[in-house]
């Protein structure tokens, strides 16, 4: 159980410059992921999940600035020179991008795109790379092999494209994978298939994973721990079971009871724009239990009785 810490963030802030100022998409993020562990980041659109994922990969747009540190095996990758980081990217830190439909180069056969990963990081020889690709495709349950490897992305279905992307992300057997919304735009059956395959690849290489999603069923199936994000902050963080069965933060409680199987009770109001962050607790305008104090005092993450379970609420554990 005592595995090493792989990724650790220390007071991480991600800011985007906009025409009249700055917005803070990620605010004071302190998370760590151990070797082989799956951390799931859950939150609404625009709460900073993907910004965090992209900051680990250093693929943020030009108008973004990073403050704080991201340590990979103790080395700060925020300040690492681009040249040095490129050796890690793809080989040790990889990603499975969101939107399968557009993340494959339309002009290259899908098999060749996976070959590229092998050629960049492992193999020298093209036919050996193709052999590996085909083996990987077979593991991912892709049909019509080996002809499928010669197909162009537009000839594949959404689920197949997503699995090709899973192959691209895992081909180099990275130690850490950022998986951004792997089930976006897939129907229920495909979703389960893709999730199963991702879980399978993860356990086979024992890679650590940051899973970004807004789907609790995905989180439940794959993750060891869950962090809930709201308006750029982590509001609750704990082991998957604890968070899902005994949610502490009112926001977590709210989204869990908003799930279809729990009766669709939506939270009142909308999540705030990152330009208009409310004072005090960021959730107070929508919180059913908000008090006067909530409007002025910004809560820190508070420990709750269970180990490693924290919640950003003044009344946590009360």
């Amino acid at each position: 159980m005592d595995s090493k810490i792989l990724i650790q963030t220390d007071h991480l802030y991600v800011q985007f410059a906009i025409p009249n100022g700055k917005v803070c998409a990620v605010n004071d993020l302190n998370l760590s992921i151990k070797e082989g562990e799956v951390l799931c980041l859950v939150g609404e659109s625009g709460c900073g999940k993907s910004a965090f994922g992209n900051s680990i990969l250093r693929l943020l747009p030009d108008n973004a600035t990073l403050q704080g540190h991201i340590y990979y095996y103790g080395k700060d990758i925020v300040r690492m020179p681009e040249k040095e980081f490129r050796l890690l990217r793809g080989k040790e830190i990889a990603c499975i991008p969101q939107s399968a439909a557009t993340s494959l180069n339309p002009l290259i056969e899908c098999g060749k795109q996976v070959d590229e990963v092998y050629l960049l990081h492992k193999e020298k020889n093209k036919s050996a790379a193709r052999k590996n690709t085909l083996r990987l495709f077979k593991m991912l349950g892709l049909p019509r092999l080996p002809e499928l490897a010669g197909d162009y992305p537009h000839e594949l279905s959404g689920g197949m494209k997503q699995r090709v992307l899973v192959a691209m992300g895992t081909a180099a057997e990275p130690k850490f994978i950022v998986v951004d919304e792997p089930t976006k735009g897939l129907d229920w059956a495909r979703k389960h298939e893709v999730i199963e395959r991702i879980g399978y690849m993860q356990s086979m290489h024992n890679s650590a994973m940051l899973l970004i999603t807004h789907d609790f069923s995905v989180a439940e199936l794959l993750s060891d721990r869950i962090a809930i994000m709201y308006a750029g902050e982590v509001v609750e963080h704990g082991e998957t079971k604890q968070v899902l069965q005994k949610p502490q933060h009112p926001y977590t409680k709210g989204i869990i009871s908003a799930l279809p199987q729990n009766g669709f009770k939506a939270i009142e109001g909308f999540s705030p724009a990152l330009t208009e962050i409310p004072s005090g607790c960021r959730f107070h305008p929508r919180c059913p239990n908000a008090t006067c104090e909530c409007t002025v005092q910004h809560p820190e993450l508070q420990k709750i009785n269970e180990p490693n379970h924290v919640s950003r609420c003044l009344y946590a554990g009360v």
Binding site: L59, R89, A94, T102, S103, L104, N105, P106, E116, M168
Partner: peptide
């Protein structure tokens, strides 16, 4: 702006390679 360029960066391609082959 397309996602596959970001994906190409993520698998570790160099800049020149992205220009030439993507």
């Amino acid at each position: 702006n397309s996602d596959y360029i970001q994906a190409a960066q993520a698998i570790g391609n160099s800049r020149l390679r992205i220009i030439v082959s993507y």
